[in-house]
Design a protein around this nucleic acid. Structure first.
Length: 199
DNA sequence: TATACGATCACCT
DNA sequence: GGTGATCGTATAC
């Protein structure tokens, strides 16, 4: 039984920075092979429009970025570095290309399966990175374009808002342009946040 | 058709 | 601290 209802589309059809902040503490539900894998979002990054040089849509509308130009609340999953997938939630109104990258989750349910998917012994590095959490939760190209607002094989469920004081804003990670923006958000002190340098 | 590179990770020193 | 793995996408020819 899923923990709660999917977040409504209205949640995503708002300024991306608000969505990125408020996705912290929300629940990713992945139902596959008769099992439910659950993780709490602890780290996000915003990619906002064609004026954001780090946004995939900055170079224009292409088959790859088409989803970002569409309805909010859908999964935009891209393949990177020849081996990893990254999960995004599309935001803002149609025709405005923006999304929130889910960078890390705290595993809550299905730990054994996640661990075997990752082939790791330790819990600590199971889902503390965008590529890692997709590997752990079996999220790949087949899930690209899924509606995150409907209970199904992949969605994001509602959860109480986290205290504003617990939210840390930093520069985005892993990009070479647009690094001046503090558009990365994480739960202060959470052990499943990526990049251990941040306290 | 060819090539350069990336919103990463694991493993090495 | 550094680097190799590995391939879809965009761009150049």
């Amino acid at each position: 039984m899923p923990p709660s209802q999917p977040l409504p589309r209205d949640f995503y059809q708002r300024p991306t920075l608000d969505v990125a902040r408020e996705l912290l503490g929300k629940i990713i539900v992945r139902q596959t092979n008769g099992e439910t894998l659950i993780g709490k979002i602890v780290e996000t990054e915003a990619y906002i429009g064609q004026d954001d040089p780090a946004c995939h849509a900055a170079k224009g509308r292409t088959p790859r970025t088409e989803l970002m130009f569409g309805e909010p609340g859908y999964a935009y999953i891209y393949f990177i570095y020849g081996m990893y997938y990254c999960l995004n939630a599309v935001t803002e109104q149609p025709e405005f290309p923006a999304a929130v990258l889910i960078r890390a989750v705290e595993p809550l349910e299905g730990l054994q399966t996640m661990r075997s998917n990752r082939n790791r012994r330790t819990m600590a590095d199971l889902t503390n990175g965008p590529g890692k959490l997709c590997q752990a939760m079996m999220i790949g190209k087949h899930q690209n374009g899924i509606d995150l607002c409907q209970s199904g094989e992949l969605y994001i469920a509602a959860a109480p808002a986290v205290p504003t004081a617990d939210i840390l804003a930093t520069r985005r990670i892993g990009i070479r342009v647009g690094t001046e923006k503090a558009w990365r958000f994480c739960l202060s002190g959470n052990r499943f946040v990526s990049h251990p340098r941040h306290r």
